[in-house]
């Protein structure tokens, strides 16, 4: 089961996540994104990638598996504060 959470404090309301979601999980509700049918999520993480405020968090899938990371960059990123 996948859970998607949107941090409302961070969300700036650009609605790019609504445009990009291939299965219509995130919908536009009063100009704010809203998660409606989380069970339809295929875990492509597109919404998380386009989110400029880093406000969308997924739980229940291995996010790391979906991201193309080189070991070198991964090690280095962790040291940026």
């Amino acid at each position: 089961m996948i859970r998607i959470e949107i941090d409302e404090d961070r969300c700036v309301g650009c609605l790019e996540c609504v445009d990009v979601c291939p299965t219509g999980v995130i919908i536009n509700k009063n100009n704010k994104p809203f998660v409606e049918n989380a069970e339809r999520c295929i875990g492509c993480l597109s919404c998380s990638y386009v989110c400029r405020a880093d406000a969308i968090k997924h739980e229940g899938i291995h996010v790391e598996e979906k991201i193309v990371k080189s070991v070198y960059i991964e090690e280095k990123i962790e040291r940026f504060v």
Partner: peptide
């Protein structure tokens, strides 16, 4: 050491 892994938008408060 605390990391900051979010963009500036998350703290900005301006709406699109």
């Amino acid at each position: 050491v605390e990391r900051h892994d979010y963009p500036v938008c998350a703290e900005c408060g301006r709406l699109v």
